[in-house]
Nucleic acid binder design. Structure first.
Ligand SMILES: [Zn+2]
Ligand SMILES: [Zn+2]
Ligand SMILES: [Zn+2]
Ligand SMILES: [Zn+2]
Lengths: 149, 149
DNA sequence: CTAAAATATAGTACACTATAACACTATACT
DNA sequence: AGTATAGTGTTATAGTGTACTATATTTTAG
């Protein structure tokens, strides 16, 4: 078991936004008002955000958006690796890493709901012979240090 | 990266059923007709099964069951470690391992939908200081050897 | 500049997934 | 039998996600 170097940047919402703009620009995609707003809501949240909460938070500034509106923005943002979906929570979180698209690994405290993101690029082993991994979901649920009895 | 010893039993539905009965017995819980039937449907399936498909398959033998009926059976079976939930598919699969409760790791082909289960007990590292993992979700999606171009 | 193509937004309607709450039944144990 | 516990049935509702159609905007090419 090798020592691990993790990023622990915990970027500010402003930094996240700047990165998002830049990535979007590099990819020649448009960082529209809607997409920016959705991204900001996720980036400013203290924890994973649910699609229907975003939907509520878009009102009334963006009229009365319907589910497809927010899901399109979420698809766009996750397609660029700017946010991650937390599968077991049906929720989304802004990517806190600078390394571009990567395999995310989450440690989620079930007491305080704090989420710690790490990159799992380097420690997936034991893959079946010939299996080509395109996407991985790695989420650990438990009790964080602060919440230990 | 150490060599891995994996189980590759691919038990038959009959073997799975026998194990299920035994585990249930050991725990002093009742392996009722309903639970047995739900377990069999999952065990005999070639891939992950969805709750509402189970609901359909229970008819008409079990009347016209409603969602809570099947979700209760699923909760019971997963509580005993007899089945696993595949989070990103909202689906369930019979546990193919003999080692009792364990952290499952799945390799799921997005072409043929084949699923390979492995045990991840031994290769989770880089846990944040003081974090007590209670449950892990580890799922890899990609293309299996057979489906490679 | 203008037409065509690509990109982005809006909305309807529906499908799928899951749980709360309450009533009822079966089993286990004095 | 009487009590406690475990299991089931049912209704209603909450929560999550997508197919499809239509419209608007931006970019590109002629
Ligand atoms: Zn990330
Ligand atoms: Zn905590
Ligand atoms: Zn298993
Ligand atoms: Zn395959």
């Amino acid at each position: 078991m090798t020592a691990c170097k993790h990023e622990h940047e915990h970027k500010t919402p402003e930094q996240l936004l700047a990165t998002a703009r830049q990535v979007c620009d590099e990819q020649g995609r448009r960082f529209t008002k809607l997409r920016e707003h959705v991204f900001n809501l996720i980036a400013r949240s203290t924890g994973p955000v649910k699609a229907y909460d975003l939907l509520d938070q878009l009102r009334p500034e963006f009229g009365s958006p319907k589910p497809p509106t927010v899901y399109r923005a979420l698809d766009f943002l996750s397609g660029l690796g700017l946010i991650h979906r937390v599968e077991a929570l049906n929720a989304y979180i802004a990517c806190d890493h600078s390394q571009g698209r990567h395999i995310a690994e989450f440690f989620i405290c079930e007491t305080c709901e704090n989420l710690e993101e790490r990159s799992a690029n380097d420690h997936i082993d034991c893959v079946p012979d010939g299996f080509d991994i395109r996407r991985s979901v790695i989420e650990h649920y438990g009790i964080c240090k602060n919440c230990a009895a």
